[in-house]
Structure formats: C-alpha cells, structure tokens
C-alpha cells in the first residue's frame, strides 16, 4: 500500500478509537495488525519489544482507572487495549514503510512542497550522526569534568549550535546538487497512488466504521 495513504489510514483509525469506546473493536484491530505484521517478517526481538514495552503504560492506566475511575473495569480494559491498538497500528506502518518512500509520495501525491519533503528527509537521514553527536557533546563535557544530563541547558545549546551549522551545510550541499526551492521538479522515481491503494484505504476504513457502529461493547 502507498505509504502516505497507509499513514493517513493508521492515524485516522487511531484518532477514531480515541473517541470511541469499544473493547471488542480494539481487540480486533490489535489482532488484524498483529497478523499483518507477522506476514511482513518482523524479527522475533522486535515483536517481543512491541508486546513488552507498552505493558507499563497500559497497566498503569488500567490500575489507576480501576482504583479511582468512576466507569468500572470495562472502561479500564478499553484503555488497556487502546494503548496496544495504537502500538500495533503504528507498527503496521513503521515496520513496512521507509521514510524515503514516505517523503517521495508526500511530495508527488500529497502536494507537500518539495523543500519540506527533501529538507526533512535530509535531516532524518542524519539520525545516526545526530545520535553520535549527542554522545560526543556529552563525552567532551565529561573530559572537562562536567556531566551533561537531559536537564542541562548546555546540552541543548550545543545541540542547537550543531543543528545551525549542519542545516547550513546540508542546504548548501542540496543547492549545489541542483535543488532549487519552489521550482517544479521531474522525478526519477515516480510513486503513484494506484486504484488498489484507494480500494484498500476506503475498504479498510469503511470496515472500521461498520465495526464501531455495530459493536458497542
């Protein structure tokens, strides 16, 4: 499925189950997403992570709602499954789509200005380097006997200084590769939204509506 449409579908469903209260639909969404993920060859480790980490917030919400909520245990279960529905819905997107394809389709099919699509893509591709830079900033501070934590203004200050410098370099590099802001572009890789994409999008979204309408428990 087209990554842009897929993201839209996932977000629309996630938004909808935030406002509706149906335990069974939540469970169905989790189940369907789970099967979809399995078919996409997820690693065992990633799968365990998907099940294990959300347990903390889900259980936390469950217990507090159970102890102090006025709506009883059924509502507590809805909140519990809602967290898992978010996670598995999100995983159907993140485990199967690349950020590059998302940027390409957002630019070509969703009319996002190319400077946003490629600018953000360029920054996201630097993620490993950014991770490294955070370590470098922390380590070099340690060498001067200064420990930087997530509450230290200096850590953010230095991160922003790096950002300013890198953004300048990246923008110049893109310009020197022939990228011109606010100009029409031709595409080497064309991504289109096919008729099948639309069928899946409307079909799946429709099914969720029907389920939410009829299953109120």
């Amino acid at each position: 499925m087209n990554p842009g449409l897929k993201l839209l579908l996932v977000m629309a469903i996630a938004l909808e189950i935030s406002f509706t209260q149906s335990l069974i639909v939540n469970v169905i969404l989790i189940g369907v997403s789970f099967i979809y993920i399995l078919f996409n060859r997820v690693t065992f480790k990633a799968l365990i992570g998907l099940i294990f980490w959300p347990l903390f917030p889900a259980l936390g919400l469950f217990v507090s709602q159970w102890l102090y909520g006025s709506a009883g245990i059924h509502f507590a279960w809805i909140l519990f499954t809602r967290i898992y529905a978010y996670v598995f819905l999100g995983a159907t997107f993140t485990l199967t789509s690349s950020i590059t394809n998302l940027a390409l389709t957002l630019e070509q099919d969703f009319r996002l200005p190319s400077k946003f699509a490629y600018g953000v893509l360029a920054a996201f591709n630097l993620m490993p380097k950014i991770n490294e830079e955070v370590q470098i900033i922390k380590t070099s501070a340690l060498m001067r006997g200064e420990a930087l934590h997530f509450w230290s203004p200096k850590l953010y200050f230095k991160a922003i200084l790096s950002s300013i410098q890198w953004s300048q370099n990246l923008a110049e590099a893109m310009t020197s590769h022939g990228f011109v802001e606010d100009q029409g572009r031709t595409h080497y890789r064309v991504i289109k939204i096919t008729r099948m994409d639309w069928v899946w999008f409307i079909g799946l979204f429709g099914i969720v509506q029907v389920l939410l309408f009829f299953i109120r428990y």
Binding site: P57, K115, V120, F150
Partner: peptide, 30 residues
Amino acid sequence: TLRNIILIALIAIFTGIIFWGAGFLYTALT
C-alpha cells in the same frame, strides 16, 4: 527556507534523541 526547514527538523531530532535516553524514566516512574 530550505535551510530553516532542515534546522527545525534537526533540532526536533536532537531533542527526540536526548529524551530517548531518558525514556527509562517514564517506565521506571510507571
């Protein structure tokens, strides 16, 4: 501008990664 868009994205990623390091806090608190 292109440069400002990249700058915003970079700052967002930097802060995102710094909080990622503090992610254990949430789990521990919970």
